[in-house]
């Protein structure tokens, strides 16, 4: 069971306090988009065996959503960042690159 650091309230808590929210940075297209674009938004997910940018909510804690960069197999956590960041901060990208280069 994961140990997760919530960037919103600073708590490091076990996974049972959190709710997973699936893949992060999914773009919600407007109502004029094509069927294919809408289907991509609704249904297409990466589901990698590897680095995953994902959404979590501190459901039993501060209630806030945030992002986490995590390896789905080793469960290594590369970092957490705020829900309103549209891409991971450079420091997390660097960390991912460093840890996955070998």
């Amino acid at each position: 069971m994961l140990l997760i650091h919530c960037p919103c309230c600073g708590v490091e808590a076990e996974e049972t306090e959190f709710a997973a929210g699936g893949e992060a940075h999914i773009h919600r297209p407007g109502p004029d988009c094509s069927d294919a674009e809408w289907a991509t938004y609704l249904f297409d997910r990466k589901n990698p065996r590897g680095v995953h940018l994902e959404r979590w909510r501190h459901a039993f804690g501060c209630g806030k959503w945030f992002h986490m960069a995590r390896h789905t197999y080793t469960l290594e956590v590369y970092g957490v960042y705020q829900a309103d960041e549209l891409t991971p901060p450079q420091a997390i990208l660097d960390r991912i690159a460093e840890r996955t280069s070998a």
């Binding site: 959404r55 209630g63 309103d84």
Partner: peptide
């Protein structure tokens, strides 16, 4: 309530 907060926090902040 969680649904409303999700949209406010993650899409329409």
């Amino acid at each position: 309530h969680a649904w409303m907060e999700e949209w406010l926090q993650t899409e329409w902040f």
